[in-house]
Nucleic acid binder design. Structure first.
Lengths: 150, 150
DNA sequence: GTCCATGCAAACTGTTTGCACGCGC
DNA sequence: GCGCGTGCAAACAGTTTGCATGGAC
């Protein structure tokens, strides 16, 4: 059911396969985390690639469109990108230190399907996102303030 | 378990109860939908309130902090605000026309509690958000292109 | 009277766009 | 070689901030 998640997907969708697009996708696929556009740009610069930030944005939009990458907001004002995973997962972000914990939750897809059917809509994207404080930050906090609730 | 959701919450939390704060909360609580900061500002202007956009933002941040309003990203780059609901609900946004459908999903809170326990973290906020195409847009789309998948 | 909250304008961040050139096909 | 993709710089949107004044308590 999932596409092959290769750069070839681009060509199939009728887009040109440029060096820049290849590079951006490579960075994203080879990184574990959730990169912001600027971080991708910086990494490309570090490896002396000739690319502009505008192209990074344009490429991300394209890769998102063809389903090779996903964007998450993670509670911040700017986007975070990751390679489209084989099976869906979601994110918890710590407001204290910014740490991200990923988790699976198959129920959510069932929920989406159910909602889709009931409302007669088509759900193309599912975002589930928790935020709060991780175990480490909870500890630090309670040490400072004497309670767990900020 | 839920606070009384009144402006008094502000004073209890040690903040001053100004006219501007009162007005912003009023606008949000009296509107059904999900307002953006600018829209709140515009409505206040319409009713000849003397307030600046900066204050709207500062007030929203404060109301969010004390739990009187919630912010959602709804897949757009800018925030949307609504009054903290008595019982949690989530959002579907249509990429075509922007329509928002709200839905309840009690399972999600259970999921959050479970995650919280398993990871030893504290979850303070839960966001579930679908996007896709509403029934109307699906129809228009298939009329134009002959298929349902953009 | 004290100090927090506000207005204003300027700064800032993340993202998008117009246009001329360059490169994939 | 045709036309999409790119770099560059400038524009843009939403949001935040510094500072002097005003109002809640």
């Amino acid at each position: 059911m999932y596409p092959e998640h290769s750069i070839e997907t681009l060509r199939i969708a009728g887009h040109r396969l440029t060096q820049q697009r290849r590079l951006v996708l490579e960075i994203i696929q080879h990184s574990q985390g959730h990169l912001e556009a600027d971080e991708i740009y910086r990494r490309l610069k570090d490896q002396h690639a000739h690319i502009s930030l505008a192209t990074v944005y344009r490429t991300l939009a394209l890769l998102k469109e063809v389903g090779l990458v996903q964007e998450h907001s993670l509670g911040q004002s700017h986007g975070h990108f990751e390679a489209a995973p084989a099976s869906p997962h979601y994110h918890f972000t710590c407001r204290g230190c910014g740490k991200v914990i990923e988790f699976a939750a198959p129920q959510v897809m069932a929920l989406a399907r159910h909602f889709q059917k009931r409302e007669g809509v088509r759900v193309t994207d599912v975002h589930l996102f928790f935020d709060g404080f991780c175990a480490d930050c909870l500890q630090t906090q309670s040490a400072q303030t004497g309670r767990n609730n900020p």
